[in-house]
Design a protein around this nucleic acid. Structure first.
Length: 452
RNA sequence: GUGGUUGUAGCUCAGUUGGUUAGAGCGCUGGAUUGUGAUUCCAGAGGUCGCCGGUUCAAACCCGGUCUUCCACCCCA
């Protein structure tokens, strides 16, 4: 048979894994620096934990795991006969793959609330699965890098997460725009339009502004059954990216005012940042559970005009995520880095550092059997000394071995023939420059910590 | 989930109105060069034309189905 992969999944070559790890390591470093602790949860959750948490659309995108055993015999005959997928599903599948890291985290907090110190700050870097139709930058299996804090409603955490976003992207060499909005502002907007109950429809439409333009948003709102006067009210908000211009419009809305006040506080406490932080009233974000500030990060089009990519990180505050699992009502706020998309962007910008794709320092090649034995000993000693070293395992033609060294991207090649084996003075070739020098064995096996 | 698109050598792609043995560049293997890679020259290997079925004397090419890729929706990192 011909091997293949499931749709929307990928293999990674060694250099790709190294580059992905560079991103993960960078993010992890700052998670640690900001006091977030690692936790792990299973890739499978009970379906009851996952369903109903992401809206109707999310349920459709959940990967379900078929029960083991003779599962069909346990399903109801009439549901099977009626081909009622929804009814049959609960009878043949009790588990599913996690769709994100936030809902499993909420489950985790509720189950372990007596073992955790609040505010509890955790991070997780792990794969999640969505049965979406794949596109570029959109996979059925992908990694998320989440940092959340639960058990505090302090707005300092919003400010802290903004700083964290800024630092990580600065370290990665990416110029970004960090967009902020507040669910309260969107709720206030809906309230003023006289459609407080239609917040979902309004935010979905407003969110598309930069994609379909003002007229498109207007049409979308009308299509969704929002009346013309309300649409006019909503449009007032969309002409500015200045929080202080929006504030007076919300004077008569309590939730709106709260949103403005909180955003003001966050913006005033973040301090100086490398990247731009902007207020964006059109920022909605899909997930239903957000209740306060919401974040989204995009590549700065002024600094990287060639890049076309959606959001590369996002997050927000949620007031009652634990409540759905019957836990104490703990507020939380978190962010998530889209590592796959960051990878694609860095690839396109050639933004990976040289050493991110190479860990091997030396390759030892030997010209005859006797030298090979000598080389094997040398490699062992060099490894003990802390140098990443590898050996070509047979005495082959030098040209062939040099080619292998080139493919392995070995920075330096140590060549051992009978001359070198006898004297302990090796020819060491620096591949990049092509220069060759003689190096004594002693300096190669000296522990790295002693020389540096 | 809806509509469209793509698939030919390891990779990127040609392939005429359906017509004998399906090509190129790069890569790969060997040699020129038995102690020097990435650069030169020569030679060679490598293909169920995504898969299944249909039309036809004849299918990489036409038709149906299916899988996959990418795109626009929906939604989203």
């Amino acid at each position: 048979m011909k091997p293949s992969l499931p749709k929307g999944t990928r293999d990674f070559l060694p250099h790709e894994v190294r580059r992905r790890n560079y991103i993960f390591d960078t993010i992890r470093t700052y998670f640690h620096r900001y006091g977030y602790q690692p936790i792990e949860t299973p890739v499978m959750e009970n379906l009851s934990t996952l369903t109903g948490k992401y809206g109707e659309e999310g349920d459709r995108l959940l990967f379900k795991v078929l029960n083991n055993g003779d599962f069909l015999s346990k399903a109801k005959e009439q549901d099977l006969a009626a081909k009622d997928s929804t009814a049959v599903l609960s009878q043949i599948s009790k588990r599913g793959l996690r769709y994100d890291l936030t809902v499993p985290f909420a489950r985790y907090v509720v189950m372990h609330q007596n073992d955790l110190a609040f505010p509890f700050k955790r991070y997780a870097i792990a794969p999640v699965w969505r049965a979406d139709r794949p596109q570029k930058g959109r996979y059925n299996e992908f990694y998320q890098c989440d940092a959340d804090v639960v058990g505090s409603d302090s707005l300092l955490y919003e400010a802290e997460l903004t700083q964290l976003l800024d630092e990580v992207f600065t370290k990665l060499g990416l110029g970004v725009v960090i967009r902020l909005n507040h669910r309260g502002i969107l709720a206030g907007l809906a309230e003023l339009a006289g459609h407080a109950d239609r917040l979902g429809d309004i935010t979905v439409a407003v969110d598309k502004l930069d994609k379909i333009g003002m007229e498109g948003v207007e049409r979308e709102l009308l299509d969704r059954g929002i009346d013309a006067t309300a649409v006019a009210t909503i449009k007032q908000f969309l002409h500015t990216d200045d929080l202080e211009e929006v504030a007076p419009l919300l004077a008569n809305s309590a939730v709106g005012q709260r949103g403005v006040t909180e955003l003001r506080e966050v913006l005033s406490s973040v301090g100086p940042l490398v990247n731009r932080v902007v207020f964006d009233v059109t920022l909605a974000r899909g997930l239903d559970y957000y209740t306060g500030c919401i974040f989204e990060v995009t590549v700065d089009p002024e600094l990287h005009p060639a890049i076309r990519m959606g959001s590369i990180a996002g997050g927000g505050r949620y007031a009652d995520l634990m409540g759905i699992f019957g836990g104490r009502d703990l507020p939380g706020v978190g962010i998530s880095f889209g590592a796959e998309r960051i990878y694609d962007v860095l690839e396109e910008l050639e933004g990976f550092p040289e050493d991110a794709s190479q860990s091997l320092e030396y390759l030892v090649v030997c010209l005859d059997e006797e030298s090979l034995r000598h080389g094997f000993d040398l490699v062992g000693d060099m490894r003990k000394a802390g140098r990443n070293t590898d050996l070509y395992p047979s005495a082959a033609k030098l040209g062939k071995m040099m080619k292998y060294a080139d493919q392995r991207a070995a920075p330096k090649v140590i060549i051992i023939g009978s001359r070198e084996a006898q004297s302990g003075e090796y020819s060491v070739k620096t591949m990049r420059s092509g220069e060759q020098e003689t190096v004594a064995r002693a300096s190669l096996v000296r522990p790295v910590s002693a020389t540096e």
